[in-house]
Amino acid sequence: MTAARVVHAQLHLLDRQVVRARDGRLVCKVDDLELALDDDGRPYVTAILMGPLALGPRVGGVLGRLMAGAARLLGATAPPRIPMEHVSRIAGAVHVGGDLEPPALEHWVRTHLVEPIPGARHENE
């Protein structure tokens, strides 16, 4: 076994693109990381957090509150999370496995705005 891998939260993880390992689809950004405490009281990373409820507090100020407020208005209570055990690779993007629900906004825009337009389900010609 080689030495344990070292990464820096800000430099290597936060704000990187999250990509679905299976097909390269873009999932989200690493908007924040969730921490828990181990038996010795040391924090470790348990999940990637995404969406406005994770990003808003990091942006801060009026805009940050607006972002989080808008998400709450749409019924969100906590940011969606991707457990760290699904992370398969950390490089220029963070690659994750598993199946993920499409985010609420994407779902809403898809069903209410984009799908009613003819051609939404077709490949481009």
Partner: peptide, 12 residues
């Protein structure tokens, strides 16, 4: 924001 973008996927 990290959304899926591009014309290489279907619009939906």
């Amino acid at each position: 924001f990290g959304w899926q973008w591009g014309k290489f996927v279907r619009p939906r």
